[in-house]
Design a protein around this nucleic acid. Structure first.
Lengths: 187, 187
DNA sequence: ACCTGAACACCGTTCAAGT
DNA sequence: ACCTGAACACCGTTCAAGT
């Protein structure tokens, strides 16, 4: 994989970082900015961008690497701090918030779920979700037929909710619905 | 709106029908077929396509008009035949089936929910869902805070599940989860 | 070992010119 | 009143040529 820590020639490394920087601000303005436009804004050749990031997917993965890592790391932290059901709810809310603000993340999530190459993201997110569900199942709060990928697919569907109070409210309602569907009603 | 029954010059009408026909088969092969390619295959000028269908959206709406109508008409039929909860479950399953097979429909649904111009689809689908939920609320089976648009958003997220048994199973699991989230547990 | 940037085939969209 | 199809600006992607 395109590893941050691999030895790279100094110019290559600089170009890579520059591309990510430019892409980050460009995508913030318009998530559909063309790769050519990003290369142009970065002042580098189109071919350079394409060697560093063979696909738009790969670029988006690199862009949100830190955030995805942080999200994955959050799961065990939440489990340590409180009951599993609360951990799940909070984690899902964070994912939803994130994909509501940064549309790229939701696309990334979708691609990671069905597609082929962004397996790192896939492993991280599924891993986190699996961990959360397993904890809830152990404590007897979560249904045994709960499936991590199912939940991520639903969450990935929540992008493009408008970043208005109404959009937030909708996300909260849908999340509550999912939680009711996930939990075992204590008899 | 682009009405089927308006008076049109014979050639215009023929072109319109031809475009829809060609698009239907082209999209079946590849849902991302370009509009230019469709015009080419239909043997008409690109401008002609664009006057009949100002956007890809508009073309997809025309393509699936019948199916959408049928789906909307199905809701009251299901309500007449059985208990509301079963009607909701069946209707949602039909919507999910449909968007799993014809990806265009899911896109359409998403666009209809957030966007601007395909309001006809929006009204039809929301209307059907609202009707179903209202019946379930009257019978005391469905939560009073259930929201039609919420459910459609979740369903629209289920496209691109593979048309394999595994994909079907996933759709069923997610649908069951949604139903659990929607229903009031009878005390 | 990496970069440049012209080149290719294609896209969505428009609009003069035709009938 | 409608259609044609060339034209425009742009896209993703490649690849010879440079350093």
């Amino acid at each position: 994989m395109t590893n941050n820590d691999e030895k790279m020639r100094a110019d290559a490394r600089m170009n890579r970082d520059l591309i990510i920087d430019v892409a980050r601000t460009a995508f913030a303005v318009n998530p559909e900015t063309s790769l050519n436009a990003i290369a142009r804004k970065a002042g580098i050749g189109a071919g350079t961008l394409y060697r560093h990031f063979p696909s738009r997917e790969a670029l988006v993965v690199a862009l949100y690497r830190k955030e995805i890592d942080a999200l994955a790391a959050l799961a065990p932290k939440l489990l340590a701090e409180g009951p599993p059901v609360e951990a799940i709810r909070t984690w899902c809310a964070r994912v939803a918030d994130f994909s509501r603000i940064k549309h790229g993340v939701a696309d990334l999530l979708r691609a990671a779920l069905s597609d082929n190459d962004s397996q790192e993201t896939y492993v991280l997110m599924i891993g986190a979700m699996t961990q959360l569900l397993a904890a809830g199942q152990s404590s007897g709060d979560i249904r045994l037929d709960a499936d991590a990928e199912d939940i991520l697919i639903v969450l990935a569907g929540l992008w493009r909710l408008p970043p208005t109070p109404a959009g937030e409210a909708r996300a909260e309602r849908i999340l509550a619905l999912v939680m009711r569907g996930l939990t075992l009603q204590s008899p």
